[in-house]
Simulated scan of single mutants.
Amino acid sequence: MDTLSLPGNWYLFDYGMVISTAPLQEDWDALHRATGLDLRPPSSRYWAGREGFDAGVLSPEAYWSGVLGRPAAEGESARLESLDAAMWSHLNPVAVDVLQTLHGEGANLALLSNMPAGMSRRYEAAATWPGYFSRLFFSGRLGMVKPDPRIFKHVLADLGAAPANIVFIDDNAANIAAAGSLGFQTILHAEGTDLQRELLALRDDF
C-alpha cells in the first residue's frame, strides 16, 4: 500500500472545518437557549468579536459580554465556553482516518489553529485528537491569528523546517494564500476534498 507521507516533511493541519466539522443545528439551538440570541448568522455578535477572542486579545468575559450585549453574569461565560467547545468538537471521520494513517507511518504532524486559549486547553485535556500531533500551535496562546504571516513564521522557527517541507492543510483560502506566499506546500480543504488523494498527489510531485 502506498504511503501518504514523505520522510522529513511536516504535515500542518488546521482544526475547524478540517479535523472538525461545522457545528450542528442542535449546537446553535443550545447556544440560543443559553443566550436568548440566534448567533448562527454571519452577522451575529458571535462572529463579530471572534478574531479578537481567537487572538487572545479579548478575555472570555469580554468576548461573551460582547456577544450578549451586556456584562456576563458570574459563571455565565464559563457555561458559554463549555457550549462553544462542544459546538466545535464534532470530528470529521475522513480527516481522522488520514491522521491515523500519517501517524502510523511516523509522519511529523503539527496543528495550527485559530482557537481561543480556553478551548484549546479543554481539548488538550479531554479530546483524543491532540495525541496525533507532536506540536500544537493555538492562536489564543500565541497572540496572533492566521493569516498573519507572523504566525506562520513562528511555526517555521519552532519546527526548524524549510517551508517547502511543510504541507499546510486549511479550509480558508486567505490562510492558504498566506502560507503559500512563504513557500509552504498547501492543500485547500473544501467540502468534498479527498485529502488522501491530495496528499498522494503532493508526494508524487515532490
Rank of each mutant, 00 (worst) to 15 (best):
D204T: 12
I19P: 01
W47Y: 15
V96E: 04
L200S: 04
M1Y: 09
V145L: 05
E76Y: 15
L142C: 01
G192P: 01
L58W: 08
P130Y: 02
S139V: 12
A117T: 12
R70H: 11
M115R: 04
R79E: 12
V57T: 08
G52M: 03
L142E: 09
G160M: 11
G183P: 00
S59L: 13
W28Y: 10
I19T: 09
G16A: 15
L156K: 03
L109R: 06
T35S: 13
Q100G: 11
S44L: 11
I19W: 08
I19H: 10
T186A: 00
S5P: 01
D158Y: 08
G56H: 04
G66D: 03
D204R: 14
E105V: 07
T21M: 15
A177Y: 04
W88F: 01
P60K: 02
D204G: 02
A201Q: 15
P93A: 09
E51N: 07
N165Y: 08
A162F: 02
S44V: 06
P116A: 05
R50D: 03
T3K: 14
G143H: 06
D2P: 10
F206P: 00
W88E: 07
I166T: 02
H32P: 01
V155L: 06
L31P: 03
F53E: 08
I166D: 00
A162H: 13
A78C: 09
L199V: 02
S181G: 14
D158Q: 05
S120G: 13
G143P: 04
E26M: 06
H32W: 13
R50H: 15
T3G: 15
D204E: 15
A164S: 10
A30P: 08
K153R: 15
V96Y: 10
A72L: 12
I166C: 04
Y63K: 02
F137D: 05
M144N: 03
F137E: 05
M17A: 01
G160C: 08
N172T: 12
E191S: 13
A162Y: 12
A161I: 08
S134W: 08
I169D: 02
R45F: 11
F184L: 00
A162D: 10
L31A: 09
A72G: 05
K146D: 03
A55W: 03
L83K: 03
A117K: 12
G69W: 03
G183D: 00
K153E: 09
S43C: 11
A72M: 10
Q25V: 15
P7V: 05
G140S: 02
R122C: 03
A117I: 13
F168L: 10
L6C: 15
R203P: 07
L195I: 11
K146W: 10
R203D: 00
A174S: 06
Q25A: 12
N9A: 06
S139T: 14
A125V: 06
R141Q: 09
A162C: 07
F137H: 09
V155P: 03
T3L: 04
D2Q: 10
G56I: 09
A164G: 12
Q185M: 04
D158M: 13
A95I: 14
A55V: 08
S20K: 04
L112T: 08
H189Y: 14
P93Y: 09
